[in-house]
Simulated scan of single mutants.
Amino acid sequence: MVRTRSLLHPTAFVVAVVAVAAALVVPAASGAAPITVAAAIAQQNGATATVRGYVVGQPTATSTVVRSAFPSDYALALADSPSQTATGQMLYVQVTSAFRAQWGLKSNPGLLGRQVDVTGVLGAYFAHPGLTSTSAFAFAGGAPTTTTTTGATTTTTTTTAVPDVDAYYSAALGKSGAALKTALHQIIRTQTKLSYDQVWEALKVTDQDPDNAANVILLYSGRSQGKTANGGNADDWNREHVWAKSHGDFGTATGPGTDVHHLRPEDVSVNANRGNKDFDAGGSAAAEAPGNYTDADSWEPRNAVKGDVARMLFYMAVRYEGDDGFADLELNDSVANGTAPYHGRLSLLRQWHAQDPPDAFEKRRNQVIYDRFQRNRNPFIDHPEWVAAIWG
């Protein structure tokens, strides 16, 4: 190696050495590669850094991290492995107020197990190695959510990385019939599964009224109702299984019984009236649900959600194929399916799908489920043409 003599003044040389040393030990928060959780735990030096890790729970005390029934949106625990249970291998992250609605676990339980990048200050939190004063959050490799404070005004800017839908479905493109159904099943069966309790909070986000953030839109009745008016009392809203949970006898089991792609808010009385009926046209006007009709064995939803109902059932018939401990769910042309793992009427569902294509509300719902809760998509919202490709 050829060495050249430095012409720097001795003072300048010292400054240069200090600058190089600082660059080696202080991680950059923006533009630099994220550091691991292990590195963040080892560098509790007050520097600003971007840390990449898996969300493994919420810290509630120095040595306590909960993985369910999250009490607030104020903190996350990150680890280098999604299965980590040792708190000594976790970094406790403060979720500052600007980020709690989108990145807090109480509001977004589907974050559990997700890999994220968080920018903040490396320092103790809950008397434990932590990351405080957080200023940016992103899913690993995605665009961040950041805050800017000018005087007394704080502005939050969210850049959402829109997933490449064709990349998500790459293994299914160009296929049809049974081959397409199989390929889609393999894609969408990879998901984060919610508990039945977590479904309450998910529906408050997925079905939010676009004109009133304090409300949800009820599926059949179309009524806008307060998010907190949920439960089992008359005129409350509860969790409607569009694929009736008795059709395959899966109940409220984690999996088909908690899959938000087919669970929707609905008035308690209307939900009971629909019961476990198959879908068909005709009947008498349904009480408290204008535009809906019912008889002894079937339910016809209002025109605005006929396609939504059809696509939820198409999703269920592809997602649950009997290979994960539950029945193989299939569509048929019957309205007398009872507890068999079938739902009908397929011929009419195809018509409803065609006459009521995906709208902005349904597309947003699909995206929110993917981004914040289950990490899988309803392919028949993204590619409506696949209904005909599978079912003729």
Results as ranks from 00 to 15, higher is better:
A101K: 14
A127E: 13
T119Y: 03
Q115F: 08
G113R: 08
G130N: 00
S83K: 14
A127C: 05
M90W: 00
A140H: 01
T87V: 15
G110E: 05
K106P: 01
V116M: 11
G110C: 09
A77Y: 05
L78W: 02
A79K: 00
G88P: 07
D80A: 03
L76Y: 14
G130M: 03
R100K: 13
S135D: 04
G130L: 02
K106S: 14
L105Q: 00
T96C: 11
D117M: 06
V121R: 14
P129A: 03
G120W: 01
G88Y: 13
F139W: 09
T85A: 12
S133F: 12
V121P: 10
T85P: 00
L76M: 11
L91R: 01
Q84Y: 10
L112N: 03
A86I: 04
Y125V: 03
S135M: 06
N108F: 11
T132H: 05
F126E: 11
S97R: 12
L105A: 07
D80E: 09
Q84M: 15
L78K: 02
S107F: 10
L76H: 05
L131W: 09
Y125R: 08
F126Y: 15
V118E: 04
G88E: 03
G88R: 15
F99N: 00
A77P: 02
G113A: 10
G141C: 08
F139P: 05
F137E: 05
Y92E: 00
F139V: 06
Y92T: 08
V95G: 05
P82M: 12
L111P: 11
A127R: 14
S135C: 03
P82A: 13
P129V: 06
T132G: 12
V93D: 05
V93W: 13
T119D: 10
F126D: 08
Q94T: 13
G141Q: 10
P129Y: 04
D117Q: 06
T134R: 07
D117E: 13
L131V: 01
T96V: 11
L131Y: 04
Y92D: 03
A127K: 12
L131G: 00
R114W: 08
F126V: 05
G88L: 10
V118Y: 08
Q84K: 13
